[in-house]
């Protein structure tokens, strides 16, 4: 069994199992967390509070007008590289083939050269994000191993993917093996690190929004 076979075979299988297991474990665990009973009288009926929660899940995605001068740069960075990641993951032909093998649906791909350029841009933006994390004093104090490792594993998948698609540095089958292996590693790390935000972000905003709306605050 060569490296590529290992990456596509046992390693990918293990990674997918760990990913599904881990994600559901953590989601369930958070869902079943003990909540302190809210003793205050609800200011809004349940339905309105729920709507408030949904609203918050969306509205928190827009930058807050008052702070835009302070947060604008990092929000623009964050948005751009996340969009880049989505395009690279969802619009590259071979990725679509992979997703099709998982979910049975497929869609047209973007030209490879375009995806390669977007991937390179995304990587550059991620470097800028890392630089900001390292130079911003408060952010640096807030950061732990999890932040850096989650960044690293994501960047590694992009770097190996770029190398594979541009045939840079090693024979293609090795580059592809490294790319798939790094993706396998990402899948394993995903549920246990901050990458899990992909699943947490909207529910947590919604729950916050619900709690606020229940108290009668405008969301």
């Amino acid at each position: 069994m060569d490296l590529l076979q290992f990456a596509r075979g046992p390693a990918l299988k293990f990674a997918l199992i760990v990913f599904c297991f881990g994600v559901l474990w953590r989601l369930t665990a958070v869902f079943l967390l003990r909540h302190e009973r809210t003793l205050s009288e609800p200011r809004h009926p349940v339905f309105r509070a729920l709507m408030g929660g949904l609203l918050a899940a969306g509205s928190r995605s827009a930058p807050h007008r008052e702070f835009i001068r302070r947060t604008g740069y990092s929000e623009a960075l964050g948005y751009s590289y996340h969009i880049g990641l989505f395009v690279v993951v969802l619009a590259f032909g071979p990725h679509i083939a992979f997703l099709k093998s998982l979910f049975g649906v497929s869609w047209p791909a973007l030209p490879n050269n375009l995806v390669t350029v977007i991937a390179a841009l995304t990587l550059t933006l991620m470097l800028a994000v890392l630089l900001r994390r390292l130079t911003h004093r408060v952010l640096r104090l807030l950061s732990n191993f999890d932040d850096y490792f989650s960044w690293f594993i994501t960047a590694l998948v992009i770097v190996t993917g770029l190398m594979a698609s541009t045939h840079f540095g090693a024979p293609y089958e090795q580059l592809l093996a490294w790319h798939i292996l790094s993706f396998d590693a990402l899948l394993v790390w995903f549920p246990f690190g901050k990458l899990m935000h992909a699943f947490y972000i909207f529910p947590s905003r919604a729950i916050n929004g619900y709690a606020l709306a229940r108290k009668g605050a405008s969301v």
Binding site: I17, C20, F21, W25, L27, T28, A29, L32
Partner: peptide, 18 residues
Amino acid sequence: KLGGAAAATGIAVAAGAT
């Protein structure tokens, strides 16, 4: 099948642990 089984185990483990 694979993802479902893994996910179900995840839910069961989390529920048990909680």
